[in-house]
């Protein structure tokens, strides 16, 4: 139970700047996901919060206490590692109780705490096993149980599900979210998987090249990306972009059609629309279908529009072949605009 404040945190490795001036406040009991491509600095930020790495600049506050000079154990945090880091020489019981033993907790209390958390993670049958005798999913559960057993204020997770197969990942996703909601801890969860981020997060911080580009609720990040990077990163497939030239008076020409756009700006903009926000209509933008992928629930059509690749998600009943000419009309309230100079959204 704690608010986390990250103030002006920067990190350089030699001459390489991994994090630039990060500012982020995470509310008590919030589930915050750090989302970004590999190498963007997610783990580095998490490790700075944890205390396994020291920031080159800035401050980390947890629960109203400045912690960046404290060792990890005094920060009220615990962590789930990407490769689990379940000790191979200890049984599941001793693994879950490891942190409690380090605190010199009496045996009876350790036993009670371990059994309770093991029950929560459905591994109470495995307490006497070694990690070599567990499956990946079971090891993952031990790692989570070990972190929960500490009853921390904050639980930090670095891609905890990335080593599991797809089906197990989906199952663990829901379960993890449930267990964490029950435990009243603040959670920071690092992932590069946007589905994981969208489905678990209270709030997502999208990271790119060592910066936080947008921190908002999943639906906000999806509907109103704050920058072109977010629009092109979130969504599968992500947003389409088309060039827009101003006509004056808040009108813009996009692929030969006129659209209402931001009136304040009067320069070339990027017009952005999600693939699923297109309707077939006679007065739509003219596109030539190139690749047609029936995905069961819907039809993904990659077309050429205004000399660019453009994806549209259509009803699966539609009969579309490569070479067909489609008239695609964007839903007006779903159109977003970005300034190519700043790459930021303009309203």
């Amino acid at each position: 139970m704690a608010v986390i404040e990250i103030k002006n945190v920067a990190k350089t490795f030699g001459s390489y700047q991994a994090l630039h001036d990060i500012n982020l406040t995470i509310a008590d009991q919030e589930f915050m996901v750090l989302l970004g491509a590999s190498g963007c600095g997610k783990s580095t930020l998490l490790r700075i919060i944890c205390g396994l790495e020291t920031a080159s600049e800035g401050e980390v506050w947890i629960g109203g206490r400045r912690v960046d000079h404290l060792p990890p154990k005094d920060r009220g945090i615990s962590m789930v590692f990407q490769n689990y880091a379940v000790f191979p020489h200890l049984t599941v019981f001793e693994n879950i109780g490891f942190g409690l033993r380090m605190q010199k907790m009496p045996d009876d209390d350790v036993k009670r705490r371990v059994e309770r958390t093991a029950g929560l993670m459905h591994i109470d049958q495995l307490l006497s096993r070694y990690s070599g005798e567990l499956s990946g999913g079971q090891r993952q559960r031990v790692a989570v149980a070990r972190a929960l057993a500490m009853e921390p204020d904050v639980i930090l997770m670095d891609e905890p599900l990335s080593n599991l197969d797809a089906l197990l990942r989906m199952e663990m996703r829901a379960e993890l979210k449930g267990v964490l909601a029950e435990s009243n801890t603040t959670a920071i969860y690092v992932t590069h998987d946007q589905v994981e981020a969208m489905s678990m997060a209270d709030r997502i911080s999208v990271m790119h090249e060592g910066k936080i580009v947008q921190a908002a609720s999943p639906i906000e990040v999806y509907r109103n990306p704050a920058a072109e990077f977010v629009a092109g990163f979130i969504g599968n497939p992500p947003m389409n972009f088309l060039d827009a030239t101003p006509q004056g008076g808040g009108k813009y020409t996009v692929a030969g059609h006129s659209f209402d756009g931001p009136s304040a700006a009067n320069s070339n903009l990027q017009f952005a629309i999600r693939p699923e926000d297109m309707k077939l209509s006679d007065d739509g933008l003219q596109a030539v279908a190139k690749v047609v992928e029936p995905l069961g629930a819907h039809l993904l059509v990659t077309c050429e529009l205004d000399g660019k690749l453009f994806r549209a998600i259509l009803d699966s009943e539609m009969q579309v072949k490569p070479g067909d000419v489609l008239k695609l009309a964007p839903m007006p309230d779903r159109i977003r605009w970005f300034d190519p100079a700043t790459t930021l959204a303009v309203a």
């Binding site: 945090i77 615990s78 962590m79 490769n83 020489h89 380090m102």
Partner: peptide, 29 residues
């Protein structure tokens, strides 16, 4: 011995000496 074990030890409150006793020595058997 993977570095993650030492990091886990550190996060869960093991001092350098305890990490040596509880992680290095047993894994070095």
């Amino acid at each position: 011995i993977p570095k993650e074990y030492y990091e886990a030890g550190e996060v869960f409150g093991a001092s350098p000496w305890q990490r040596f006793l509880k992680i290095t020595l047993p894994l070095l058997r």
